[in-house]
Design a protein around this nucleic acid. Structure first.
Lengths: 295, 295
DNA sequence: GGCATTGCCTGACTAGAGTCAGAGAATGGA
DNA sequence: TCCATTCTCTGACTCTAGTCAGGCAATGCC
């Protein structure tokens, strides 16, 4: 890796650590220890299971428990067993907890303002643009992609979100049973591969590929969550699936898509896919693509 | 301040805090408490006075003292009274201390690499570019500009650095006594204003303005340290001085510069200065400028 | 029903980070 | 010379943050 890049990243780490890290803890930790504040924040408006809090913050189970007791004592949260599995417990904010959380929110805003006020209009615009870029790329770096059974709950969650989105975007709505490969299980072994992308443990994207004797592999159900767009994740998932195709010995891959899915069409074209005549009778398709693989 | 900008800064704070802040402490704090590591780093190769360490890190005097005792016990630093003022004590790294510091250095590199490895070539280039921008703008936000007596040690340090640089850049060298206003004191009250810019307490730029009865104020000795260039600091100092001119009731300001100082010339032009015939006989000048003030 | 597992909790710790009040030496100025 | 000030150090604390080992209840599987 080149030394200039490393030096730049280090300078960045240093500046940001000094200018933001320190202030951050100072700001948020005035009324309440940082640990509690982070936890309170992470509970969110909706409430969250204890184990998810633990995972998200990477803390010891005993420690989280103690923090929760403390928040509970202050009347900021309630902790009660989950309906279906009474071992799991769910944390929820009380009214006071919401108020406290809103306060943290305000503090974060103030910190952000503090950072911006010392700059003029033009510098501010440049700073936020650059921050957004850094933010996106750092986030992209934490996304992991792994093979998963298409029937795994996380896969199912992705597919459901995908279908819901198609239902919204297509004029005629979307009914998976009218589409090809209605049973996603067929995208898994032994004749397919399904991959899921995760960000902070949450599934945020998926895609599958199916192998057919004597014809090119067929890519299906490519999706990226709205919250994770702009990270180059679609491209990454696509590359991952193409990789499987190459390893299977295929010379090309095929897929089709709907005319409403313009980002997808753009992605496919820029990734080297070329439009070809319809090679199947997918009900929802308007465009069929094929890409020659050289691997 | 607009809400989008604030939201972006907050997202940034959060991502960076998670991705870098946490890792950072983890990485540096493996062998040694973070406090000690930071201190060890801040001592630097050259050594540093205890009070500067305190200022720089914003720590309690007793706490720093204790950290130093601990580093001393481990044979990493020596602390001895300063020659000229035996109350002040200077911290220096021992050979072992240097080694340990090099280790921290290496860790920082590893952290930087870790951040970069998950990205492809193109993303890496974009990330480092954006980081450098954020870095520069955040740093620019911490620069303070204040009026100071031109004979104050910090002013003198700026002027000396300026003269040294001119000596290097001018073919014929530079001798302040051949230049106009050889005594910088004249740039201070009652007939002038001298401003000094500081970054983390260090003087990194200066500039003066002198008022003459019946003619436009005269700007002189504008300088920005190499380490602080690219932060828009020159423009800021210039604006500051012009502000004083406006407040004094002046309708325009004047200055002159040498043909070697191309950045300065660019700055003056872009700040609205127009070249005019020589209005004085400054030995080192090739270009004379004037700007009309509307305030 | 028996038994391993899961999920959370408590008790008992340790170490780090930081504060506060003074003590004591060196310095500078009247 | 005396006195206020500056600078650093020590002792005595407090509070967070985090770890580790076990314990208890609910659950799932045979």
């Amino acid at each position: 890796m080149d030394a200039d890049s490393i030096a730049q990243v280090r300078r960045f780490n240093r500046t940001v650590g000094e200018r933001i890290g320190v202030l951050h803890d100072h700001f948020l930790g005035t009324d309440r220890p940082v640990g509690e504040a982070r936890l309170l924040w992470e509970v969110g408006e909706e409430g969250r299971d204890v184990r998810r809090l633990r995972d998200r913050l990477g803390l010891d189970s005993g420690y989280v428990s103690r923090l929760l007791r403390s928040l509970e004592r202050d009347g900021l949260v309630t902790v009660e067993p989950q309906r279906h599995d009474r071992r799991v417990r769910t944390v929820r904010l009380t009214a006071a907890g919401r108020k406290e959380r809103a306060l943290l929110d305000e503090r974060s805003d103030e910190l952000a303002e503090l950072i911006l006020t010392s700059l003029n209009e033009k510098q501010r615009a440049r700073l936020t643009a650059a921050m957004s870029e850094v933010d996106r790329l750092l986030t992209a770096g934490t996304v992991s992609v792994e093979e998963l059974d298409p029937r795994h709950p996380d896969s199912a969650a992705c597919l459901q979100a995908y279908f819901d989105e198609l239902g919204d975007r297509f004029e005629e709505g979307f009914d998976a049973s009218l589409s090809l490969v209605p049973d996603a299980g067929e995208l898994g072994p032994p004749h397919g591969v399904f991959v899921v992308a995760r960000l902070h443990g949450e599934p945020v994207g998926c895609g599958g590929i199916q192998f057919h004797e004597g014809e090119p592999p067929y890519i299906k159900r490519m999706w990226v969550a709205k919250s994770a767009r702009g990270l180059g994740l679609g491209r990454r998932l696509l590359a991952e699936l193409e990789d499987h195709a190459v390893r299977s010995g295929a010379r090309s891959v095929r897929l089709e898509t709907n005319r409403e899915l313009t980002e997808a069409i753009t992605l496919y074209r820029s990734a080297g896919y070329e439009e070809v005549p319809a090679f199947n009778d997918e009900h929802y398709a308007h465009h069929w693509f094929e890409k020659r693989l050289h691997g």
